[in-house]
Design a protein around this nucleic acid. Structure first.
Lengths: 223, 223
DNA sequence: TGGTCATGCGTACGAGCGTACACATGATGC
DNA sequence: GCATCATGTGTACGCTCGTACGCATGACCA
């Protein structure tokens, strides 16, 4: 865990997006993966060269590992195992573990913000916006426990790592901005905080709030 | 990080509270500590036997380390260094690192709940209770950033560790109970969540809420 | 005061980590 | 079809971790 200078070596020194590799065949999902039905011993020697989209799959795998084992349990080896790629592939695609984490969290925050935008963008009046907020919390946020764990993990990681703090900031800003399309800035900020609290409490409570209770809390505040 | 069976060896096998050691001299704070003003080389050989209260100081040191480096950066060695005791002392007083963490968090939650009780216990009517909540959030929770970090760290640790989850549960329950002395259960729960969200947002925002904004949010909800 | 033994400490071990880097590999240009 | 060399992998290194355990130490009893 070091966020020092020098993003590390890596082939494509100057800023090209994907590490290197040429265009090649079209990017079908999961190019090779598990051999199919082989005996357990002898892990087999698969041709795995030229796998475009591997970097993306690595980030997906990272999010899965974080949700399952927490940031503390997220290692190069664990991610590589989850994505079924060799360990060396990690240092090839990413300069450091911090870089992987930051990119994974960025992607997650991006996706979450998108849901926020969509839900609230569909509303045309204030009542619709209130319904949208309720749906958002009840179905999207509380509906996927993995996302919830990811959020908490992101919070605590952000408390320590400035690069991640920027991600958290951006996320918060975007959700607040979405709320401001329907409510005044003060209300937006307060509702945002309320949502945060409701989600967190529900996530950690053995006696989680019911959908009706969620609805009640939000309506009480907004009406 | 293993929470398996067998709490480990340790001298006082059957359940005695403090590890072992006889009564001895009265428990003054910080029995020995740093030599005073010695040259850096040669760490000196201090007599350190018979140090009652060391276990307590280790837990205090643990909380300091967690606040400073996070749960992930909290190791036997780091705690021992912070408390200025030898590494071996850790395994002598605690069966495992998990045990240290659980005990530290329990103490922290206990202290936090006490503040909650005191603030709300002093209130005699509903308006007083609302003022108490505002003071609590503004001065006690947001006033000490360390506590705030500890809270978030506890949350994420609890998501993974069942023993810690009990601590979090107890804490939440106690703060809600305190609120219920002045508000109906539904309101109590919702206010509790609101507080959580306000604190979290303020903690992570580069643009933290002002005391007035805190007051506004709570009053809006409760009046 | 001197012997005894519970108390507390120094040190070492095996495991797992992030990262570096030499080399195998197979797509590309002739 | 073959030589070439960028692309991707296997492996090893140095480090820190949690934990175990043999032995030094000094408080207590006679």
């Amino acid at each position: 865990m070091t966020a020092d200078p020098v993003p590390s070596r890596r082939p494509g020194a100057a800023g090209d997006p994907v590490p290197v590799h040429r265009p090649g065949a079209a990017g079908d999902p999961v190019p090779v993966h598990r051999p199919g039905a082989t005996g357990d011993p002898a892990p087999a020697r698969r041709s795995r060269r030229h796998d475009p989209g591997r970097r993306d799959r690595l980030i997906d795998a990272t999010l899965r590992v974080i949700a399952e084992r927490g940031v503390a349990g997220t290692t190069h080896r664990e991610i590589a195992r989850a994505a079924d790629v060799p360990l060396g592939s990690m240092t090839y695609h990413f300069g450091s573990l911090d870089e992987v984490l930051a990119e994974a969290f960025t992607r997650h925050a991006e996706a979450a913000a998108k849901v926020f935008d969509e839900r609230l963008g569909a509303a045309t009046d204030r009542d619709g916006a209130i319904e949208a907020v309720i749906t958002l919390v009840r179905d999207d946020l509380l509906g996927s426990p993995d996302d919830l764990v990811l959020a908490v993990e992101l919070y605590v990681a952000a408390a320590r790592n400035p690069a991640l703090r920027a991600v958290t900031q951006g996320w918060m800003q975007r959700s607040r901005r979405a709320l401001e399309r329907h409510f005044d800035p003060t209300t937006a900020r307060e509702v945002d905080a309320l949502i945060e609290g409701l989600v967190l409490h529900s996530a950690l409570s053995t006696d989680p709030m019911t959908p009706d209770q969620i609805r009640h809390a939000i309506e009480r505040y907004l009406r």
